[in-house]
Nucleic acid binder design. Structure first.
Lengths: 402, 402
DNA sequence: CGTCTTTGTGAATCATACC
DNA sequence: AGGTATGATTCACAAAGAC
């Protein structure tokens, strides 16, 4: 749902304790006019000029108080600032939400081109993370271990002697004792995320547009699928798009009619929109997941973006024609995937078509594929299968076994 | 010079406009007792407990005002905070130095041994950078270009057409026109510097000790050799050590006699940590190629960097033990790879070993592998094989075919 | 229910075995 | 002797457990 209104009005009409998470990216108090043109000549502007800091802060406080009201008891709020007024905003957050409900100062860092000036290049923005109460929803995201870490630490159990000195644990026979399964390193409060898509650099987007990746992280750590996300200054709608991609419900509010229109378009049928501006927005979405990119890479493919039937083209031609590769998506049956690939691949006159199966399901055996299509299992699927077989061979079923 | 006194007293005795730069790392208002032992068992403590925030802020404001007095007109001040009270401190800085003299919010980020915690792992501290006047001393530090930067952008001269569109410049004969030598990318306000490691020899045991590298950057951008640096809460004396190493004069103040003693000792033979990480960079620990990383990723592995026999560990345990994965290297025969994996994997008590074959060669059939080792072909190899078969079926050999 | 103690943790070092 | 590979260790700090 996208609402065109001053968010204060819209918030007042909303039911209390109905929202799981609020992200807001309000005016920064830069005392500047923000405006940007897209290549179709349409101009998006909003004013960030204020009579005084007091009036800006009053504006913010009123809205934050209403936000607190609509938040569920275990809900979270993320307030995006740059360094013009972050200290004032945090004071208000302390007052409205309570300083004991401050959770983190998240730093979003990025590298960007910049003309030389006297001083350091600004390369970060701050997001204040508060929760409504001490009993809040939080999903830990685990990241990879540092390259300096050795595996012993991850795999081996350790003990402490009476002085508190730690050492690795061995059993009576002198063998290593395994630690229980670990999940990786919990995410830090510093997030390095590139500023939009590098390709979008020379194009323009809605002012202050944020990367989807940033919003995805915020949504992931603070909500579950089906929860409701609110963005009271939704702008071009990045928050809503991220929420939709992650299966969350969403409410966006913006007082600017063209922003609301833009959100609606981005959310409904992004592929069909004409505007150059919108395409920029879509480019900045991840159309391929990390796993898909990695898989295409291992197959020796060039990645193809924005084609429903083809994910990659092999770097090597066979029979003097390209070979199209498609990876079965989560929501696709093998037959659906095969049909999409077949249609797209024939149009491009590919010699062979390669379909990578990523999940096994009952109907796969009957899938009808043309003679020039090779269906292969993803490495993960193959390995899973192999390990399952091995496990049953050994006659022992592990608790963690799939 | 190191002075043992409350810095308010010491500052009052100092001459006005005599200092080029002040760095201070005052108590953070954590409301905790800070204490730490050095390796000889000596214990250093200081209290960061306060009656109230007001008393803490009064304490800070008095000292900041004196600091302003002793700063030269073109001088700078760097105030080190964590997120407990940074917003309050910045308010005071705005009042004492003027918000128009705010230059940057420097973010020092680091990775640190983690701990269990509901929420994000703290991985940064903040340094507020103000100058006394608008006419301040600043030395730009240039860093290396990011590896993704197109080399043309650095080396080629560029021109703008009448519409303002930029393009590379060529001379009449179509040759590239070289740009004048560039110095690199000016430093950003986000600094990634390794945290002083628990095993580092340079650790003095004094709480809150900062890395010399951090202070070097601050001193470099704001002062020239021969200038005078002041640290009113000098603690273990890192600022003074960095100043001495860079040929700056220095004044340190601390109320703690053992801190002053420690400073004296460190200054006798000032040294920067021989941090291997800092010297060679995190990338030198990353020994995997893009392809290997992609493959490990598709298999669902955590990457293992510091082991010759193991490239990754599956995220999921089988039979309650880890599964080690190795990718056959170009120069390795299958047998060599299997032996390395076997040795390393058994030492770590892995349940299964997975060897990914990346090239087919004659001797592979005879490779002897243990019962718990799964040898699988890389997806690229599988696909190549499949395509070759298909091609011969079709009875046509492609020119590009392998 | 506070306060003290124990435990789990992983980054980046030191230490040592092995060429 | 020098370098490399990798095992071992320290520390801070939140959470759980003990008292």
């Amino acid at each position: 749902m996208v609402i065109r209104d001053d968010c204060l009005n819209a918030l007042k009409k909303m039911e209390g304790e109905s929202i799981d998470m609020v992200y807001l990216d309000p005016p920064f108090f830069t005392q500047k006019e923000q405006h940007l043109k897209d290549s179709d000549g349409r101009e998006y502007t909003f004013s960030d000029r204020w009579e005084s800091r007091e009036s800006y802060l009053r504006f913010m406080r009123l809205r934050l108080e209403e936000i607190k009201r609509v938040l569920k008891k275990n809900g979270s709020i993320f307030l995006h600032c740059d360094d013009s007024a972050s200290h004032y905003l945090r004071l208000i957050m302390d007052e409205v939400f309570g300083e004991n409900h401050f959770r983190s100062e998240i730093i979003w860092t990025y590298k960007r081109w910049s003309n030389s000036r006297k001083g350091l290049i600004p390369g970060h923005q701050t997001i204040f993370y508060y929760t409504k109460t001490a009993n809040f929803k939080f999903n830990t995201i685990y990241n990879a271990y540092s390259p300096t870490t050795n595996i012993d630490q991850i795999l081996q159990e350790r003990v402490r002697d009476t002085y508190g000195k730690a050492s690795y644990k061995y059993d009576d026979e002198g063998n290593v004792v395994l630690a229980r399964e670990k999940k990786g390193v919990p995410m830090s409060d510093v997030w390095e995320i590139p500023f939009l898509n590098p390709k979008a650099k020379e194009r323009t987007g809605y002012p202050t547009q944020k990367p989807v990746e940033l919003l995805e992280r915020i949504i992931r750590i603070s909500t579950d699928p089906g929860d409701c996300v609110l963005d009271p200054f939704c702008g071009s709608g990045t928050t809503l798009v991220a929420a939709k991609l992650l299966g969350r419900n969403y409410v966006g509010i913006d007082s600017n009619p063209s922003a609301v229109r833009l959100c609606g378009q981005r959310l409904e049928c992004p592929a069909k929109t004409e505007s150059r501006l919108l395409k920029v927005g879509i480019d900045s979405y991840k159309t391929k997941t990390e796993e898909e990119l990695a898989l295409l890479n291992t197959l020796g493919c060039d990645v193809v973006q924005r084609n429903k039937g083809i994910d990659g083209i092999l770097k090597t031609y066979y029979r003097n024609a390209p070979v199209a590769v498609k990876i079965q998506k989560k929501h696709e049956s093998l037959q659906e995937a095969a049909d999409l690939l077949c249609r797209a691949g024939n149009k491009k006159r590919c010699s062979f078509l390669v379909l990578v199966r990523t999940s096994r399901s009952a109907g796969d055996q009957e899938a009808a594929v043309p003679a020039n299509m090779i269906v292969m299992d993803s490495p993960e699927l193959l390995l899973e299968n192999e390990l399952s077989n091995q496990c049953s061979l050994y006659g022992v079923k592990s608790a963690q076994m799939l």
